[in-house]
Design a protein around this nucleic acid. Sequence first.
DNA 1: CTGTTAGCGCATTCAG
DNA 2: CTGAATGCGCTAACAG
Lengths: 335, 335
Amino acid sequence: MVTIRDVAKLAGVSSATVSRVLNNNYAVSDERREKVMRAVEELGYRPNIIGRNLSRNENRTILVVSSHIDSHMMRGAYYAATALGYDLILSFAPDGYTEDALKYYENGLAGGIILINFNESDEQIVNICKKYPVVQCAEYIDFPGSCHVSIDDTQATCQMTEMLIKRGRKRLAFMAPGNSRQGITVGYAEQREKGFREALRRHNIVPNPDFIARLHPNSYEAGAKQMRSWLTLPPEERPDAVVCAQDLLGAACVSVITHAGIDVPRQIAVTGYDNLMYSGMCIPKLTTVAQPFYEMGAESVRMLVKRMTGAENFERTVYLHHDIILRGSTEEGLE
Amino acid sequence: MVTIRDVAKLAGVSSATVSRVLNNNYAVSDERREKVMRAVEELGYRPNIIGRNLSRNENRTILVVSSHIDSHMMRGAYYAATALGYDLILSFAPDGYTEDALKYYENGLAGGIILINFNESDEQIVNICKKYPVVQCAEYIDFPGSCHVSIDDTQATCQMTEMLIKRGRKRLAFMAPGNSRQGITVGYAEQREKGFREALRRHNIVPNPDFIARLHPNSYEAGAKQMRSWLTLPPEERPDAVVCAQDLLGAACVSVITHAGIDVPRQIAVTGYDNLMYSGMCIPKLTTVAQPFYEMGAESVRMLVKRMTGAENFERTVYLHHDIILRGSTEEGLE
DNA sequence: CTGTTAGCGCATTCAG
DNA sequence: CTGAATGCGCTAACAG
C-alpha cells in the first residue's frame, strides 16, 4: 500500500505538506504543491479513508443495512453520496442478525446508517433507530423522531382502487402479505390495506371480508392458491378486480385467471405494486404503482447526511411522488 | 464509543491485558481475566475492527463486490466468514464503476475480494484479478491463475438437454442472453450453449441455427418475442423443447406457449436455469438447474481466506454439484 | 504473568 | 509557509 509517507519521501517534503495539498485547506507553495502532485501521480497514491477517519475523528461513510438490495435504490444512494463526498458500504446480515451488521458502525467504519427492507420486529427497529443515526428507506416504522423516506402507500393504494371503481368494478378484492412471524408485522401491507378500504369507503362500497386476503407465507404459490379459491365462486360472485400489494402476487393472479380461461382485464382486472420485473412477467402485464426507487435512495442519503452533520431543522419524514402505470391487466388494448 | 482503554480503566488493568483476554493468546491470571470480562460486559465493549487491522497489519475483512446480490449466496458467505473469524462488507458500484468499489480494498478496509455478477469487460476483470486477491463466484473469466467457484454450466446444460432427448424430444431450441455491450461477453451463456450443442452432437442431432437464440437485450419481453416467433412455424416444424439459459426466459416461454393454447409440456417442453423465484412464476412451473448458491458463497470465502493467509497449494478452480429439478414444464403430472 | 511503548495511516496541532 | 510531534483504537514486542 502506498502511504502518505511514501509520497512525502518521493516529493522531498513532509507528510503534513502532502496532507495539506490533498485536502487543500491550507496554503502550500506552488513549487511544493507541484512536486507533491507529481509524486501522487507517479505512485498512484490514494488517501486511506480509515486513517483519515481515525485521525479526523469524523466519518464520511454511510452504512447501508439491507437483506434485499434494490439496485436502483443503491444507484440513487451511490450518486447522492458521491455528490456529497460520502462513501457507501453495505452490510449484509441474515434475517435476525441485523444487530451484527451494526458492528461496522460501532467500529467507526461508518458514521450513519440507512436501513432498507429490514426484517426485524418493530421493537428492534425502534431500538436501533434510537441508538444510532438511522434513516429508514422504503419500509419504515413511524415513531416520534423517526427519519424515513418512502412513498405514501395508503394514498397510492387508495388511488389505484378508486381508479378501478371509476372504471365500473364493483366486487373488489385485496391481497397482501400477512404477518410472517410473531412480533413482525408487515407495515407497508397494513398501509396499503388501509388505502384499499378508504377507497371503498369513499364510494360507499361495503368491503367483503372474504375478499381481503393476508397471505402467509407470502409467495407466488400462496397468491395463486388464493386466486384459485376465489375462482371457485360462481362468476357473478367472484371479484371483478384484485388489488395486490405486490407485483409477485399480481403476476400470480393474472396467470391463474388466464389459465382458467377467464379474460384479464375484461372479466377480472388485476393490479400490482412496485413496478418490479415481476410486473412484466405475465400476459397481459400488470398495472402497478411505480415507486421512485432511485430517488428514494438518493433522498435517504441526503437526509442522513443532514443528521450526520448535526443539522437540527430538517424534514424527518419525506414522501416522494409515485406513479400509477397503466397496463394490460386493467386496460383493454394495452399490453 | 467504548474503547479498550475505558475497559482497562474500569477493570484496573492495562489495555494490553484487556487485549490479551479478548484474544486469549496469552496467559492472564484468572482474577484479572474475571475483572476484564466484567468490565467488558458492563460497558458493552466490542473491539474495533479497524484498530485491530491497523495494528496487526493484517486484515480479516472480505470485500464482496457485486451489482446483484443473491441472498442465499450472501448467507453462505456470511456463515463461512463468521466461522473463520472474518468479516464481510459489500460494496455496490453501478455497472462500469467496479473500479471504484475497489477503493475499499486499497483503503485497507478489506484484505481480499469476492467478485459476484460483475458487469465489466473480460479485460477489465482479468486486470482486477491480477492486481488484487480475488475469487470469482458464479460467473467467471478463466485465465491462468484465476480463482473461481461455480458449477459446471456446460455439463449441466448438456445433462438437461440429454434428458429431453431421452424423453423423445427431437426439435430442440436454445435461448440465452447475448452480448450486451461491446467488449462484454456473457460467459456463462456461451458455456451453456456449448453444453446444449454437445448433447445434440452426442445424439447425432444436427442443430438448427434458427433454433439458437442469443437475446439482446436480455429480458422477459425478448424471450417472449422469440418464443412467439417460433410459434409462427407450422406445428410439425416448431421446437418441441426449449432449453433456456435463465429461468426468466423459461418463464416467458411457458407463458407465451400456454397463452397460445399449446400444452406445456405435452407439445412443447421448457427448461430454465438457476432455480430462482422466476422458475415458480409460471404454470406449469419450470424444470431447472439448481445452483448451490449458499455453498458457492461459503466456498468462495474459504478459498479466498486460503489466498489471504498465504496458502500456495490450494484448488483455485472449484466446481460444485448442481441438481436438475424436474417440474411440470417437462414432466406430465407434476406442477 | 503484566505494564509500558511503538506503530499501523492520517490530519492536526504546535513550533518555527 | 513548513516540519515535527501527537493521537485516533488496537496489538505486538519488549522489559520487567
